[in-house]
Computed example of a mutant assay.
Amino acid sequence: MGFAKSQNIANIGRNMKAGPCTSSFKKHRSSILLVFVSALLSACNSSRVPPKPNVQITLVPAANPGGPVQLEFIEGRASGVEPGQRIVLYARSDIWWIQPFANQPFTEIQPDSTWRNSTHLGTDYAALLVEPGFHPATKLPTLPAEGNGVIAIATSKGKFVAPIVPKVIHFSGYDWRVRNAASDRGGEPNSYDPSNVWIDKNGYLHLRMEEHDGVWTCAEVSLTRSLGYGSYIFVVQDIGHLGPSAALGLYTNDDFRTDDIRSELDIELSRWGIADNKNAQYVVQPFYIPENVSRFMAPAGVLTHMLRWESERASFKTVRGSMVGPGSTISEHIFTSGIPIPAKETAHMGLYSYRHSKSSSQQPVEVVIEKFEFLP
C-alpha cells in the first residue's frame, strides 16, 4: 500500500510538471497547422493558370460574296482581355478582306466585354483578338495562326439568307451597278444611298449627295463588266458649284485585287477641302508619290475628260465642251510609270465627301454626267 501510494504521488507530480508543456504544444500545433494550410493555399493560388483569352462572334452577318457594295453589322464578346487589346475583323470573298475599312482596321472592346462594327458581306467572317501595336494586313489568302500578336481567333460561316439584288441602271449603252454600302474613299467613311442615282429624260446620269434621315449620303456607280485597255471618255456638266469637300471621281479600279497595291487610274474633280486649291487632277495610284499626280484648274462649263489606258502608258486629257476640237484642250498629261495591268478593273463614277467631318457645313450637291464612251 505504501508502494502504491508512492507511485500515485509520483504520477501526480509528473502530470503536474507535464501539464503546462502539453497545453502549450497543443496551442503551437494549431498555429503551425494554420500557417501550413495558409502557405499551401497561397502556393496553389500563385500556381493557378489564368483563363485563356477568348473571342466569340455572337451576331453573324449574311453569307453573300457581294464584295464592296454591301454592309451589315457583326457583333461578339471577348473574355480575358487586357488593356489595349482590340479586335480585327475580316470577311472572306475569295480571300480575307479587313473590315470595315483599310484605314479603320480595329474594333474596340467595350467595358462589358462586347464589341460591334460593320462589315462588308462575305461567305465567312473572322474576329481576331490582338495585342496593342499589332499591324494587320488588309488582305490575306489565309488567316494568321495564334501568336505574333494574335491572341485568339473566332470564325463563322455567314448566315444563309435570300440574295441581295443590287440596283442596276442602264446609262450610255452600259449596265452600271449602284453602290449601297459605305466606303472609306476620301479618307473618312461615307454612306451611299441608291436613291441618289437616277437617269433623266435626256438619258443623262445624275449623282447627288445629300442628307437622308440624319445621315449624309453619297452616290456611286460602277460598270458590271471589265473593259481593259482602251479610251475611257466622260462628258461632265459644270462642276463649279462643288463645295471644297465635294469630290467627283471618274476612274478605273479593281475592287477585288488580292494584294495591297492600288490598281487605279483617276480623274478627280475636287478642291480637297481647301477653297483656293486647284480643282482637278490626274492620278496613277498611289497618290503619295509626287510623280503620280498632275493637278490643274478645270474651268466652268461642260468638260470632256479622257483616259487612254495602254500597256505601260496612261494618257489623260481634258477639253472644253462635249466634242474634241482644235484649241479646246485645257490640260493633258502622260504617265509611264506604275501603270496597272488589266485584270478585273471596272470604270467607276462617284460623288463623295472628302473628310466631311472636318467641313464646317455641307450643302446638297448634284453632278450631271451626259455621256460615257469606251473606245478599244
Rank of each mutant, 00 (worst) to 15 (best):
G173H: 14
D260M: 09
K201M: 07
S191K: 13
E220Y: 01
N202C: 05
N148K: 14
K139P: 02
K201L: 06
H206M: 02
D276C: 03
V221E: 02
H305N: 11
A102G: 10
E310V: 04
E332D: 12
A300Q: 13
F36K: 12
R308T: 07
V55L: 14
F101M: 11
Y192A: 07
R177L: 11
E146A: 09
A219D: 07
L250D: 03
E211I: 00
R308W: 05
S38M: 12
N11A: 09
S360C: 02
H212L: 07
M297G: 06
L265G: 01
Q281S: 07
V319N: 10
I151H: 08
L59Y: 08
K317Y: 00
I153V: 14
A154Y: 04
S93C: 12
Q7G: 02
M209R: 13
N279T: 04
L34K: 13
L121K: 11
S337R: 12
F160V: 03
Q70N: 10
V215C: 07
A10K: 15
V221S: 02
L269F: 06
V283Q: 08
W272T: 01
A343D: 10
L351D: 01
S24F: 07
I12Q: 12
N8C: 10
Y288I: 02
N277A: 05
E291Q: 15
D200G: 05
S191E: 14
V302H: 06
V81P: 06
D124N: 15
Q362P: 00
V88L: 08
R177F: 01
V161C: 07
K157L: 10
N64S: 13
S46V: 07
T318S: 15
A62D: 09
W97C: 00
V81H: 11
Q362L: 12
R14E: 06
V215Q: 15
R320P: 01
A181F: 00
S93K: 14
S311N: 11
R308C: 04
S6I: 08
E366K: 13
E211S: 04
G350H: 04
P83T: 04
A280F: 03
P136Y: 04
I341V: 14
R355S: 07
S6P: 03
G149F: 02
P244W: 02
V55H: 11
S6Y: 08
N15C: 05
T304I: 05
F36Y: 05
D276V: 03
T22F: 09
A162L: 09
Q85V: 00
G327L: 10
G147A: 09
S24A: 13
T318D: 09
S42I: 05
G67E: 10
G243T: 09
K159F: 06
I233W: 03
G133C: 06
D200N: 14
G243E: 15
Q70R: 15
Q362N: 08
G228R: 15
G76N: 08
I153T: 12
K201C: 01
K344H: 14
G228S: 13
I334A: 05
S226Q: 14
N196F: 00
I274Y: 04
P144A: 08
V60S: 08
V283W: 01
G243P: 08
Y288M: 09
N54F: 01
V55N: 13
N64P: 03
N202M: 13
S328W: 10
K159N: 13
V235F: 00
N202D: 15
G203F: 02
R29K: 12
